[in-house]
Amino acid sequence: DVVGLMCLRVFVKGDEDRYEALKESAMALGSAFQKVNFLRDLKADYENLNRSYFPNTNLLELDEISKQRIVEEIKADFKMGYDGIVQLPNEAKFGVYTAYKYYYKLLRKLQKTPSLEIKNARIRVPNYQKFGLLAKSYVNYKLNLY
């Protein structure tokens, strides 16, 4: 939440009305990005750092039901965050939209990955797909196709 708010503060350049209007969306988007990172880095965070970012979830026994519950929570955050992206100042939209597309793609990969594999490997988006996301995001930005 905090990272989303810090970024929003920069993006709106002192426009308090716009900041207040986009505050909830920015918090949700920041939260979605962070939760995707947590899910992707589950193994390292839990085993090496003894950290768990998903309350009420036994990460030693992460199953498909628990994973799906986490994914649905993240999707809800993304939906709220997207609503704010389209209202951002033009100069901020491209970067935030591109990050949104990347993290949503990573979430879809995590959703398709068996929970056992998530616990034992770090899932990533290949570079060629990252470049494709960047190109599509740029075209959508230029043509205002959000």
Rank of each mutant, 00 (worst) to 15 (best):
A99W: 02
Q87W: 00
M80L: 14
V12T: 06
M27E: 14
N90Q: 13
F94Q: 08
L107S: 04
L49Q: 14
G81H: 04
L110Q: 04
Y46M: 06
Y46S: 07
L49M: 14
A26I: 01
N50W: 01
K79I: 05
L106E: 10
S52I: 10
A99H: 02
A28I: 08
L59N: 01
P89H: 05
N58W: 02
A32S: 07
Y19G: 00
D17M: 00
Q68T: 14
N48V: 15
E16M: 07
Y53A: 06
E73M: 13
V36N: 04
A32D: 07
E20H: 11
L49P: 01
E64D: 12
F38S: 10
A76C: 08
K109G: 04
G84F: 02
R40T: 10
P89R: 03
G14I: 09
T57Y: 02
Y103C: 06
A76D: 12
A32L: 04
I85Y: 02
A76P: 00
L62C: 03
Y103R: 07
G84W: 02
A32I: 03
V71M: 09
V86S: 00
T57S: 06
G95W: 01
V71N: 09
K105T: 15
L88W: 00
L29Y: 08
P55V: 12
G84L: 04
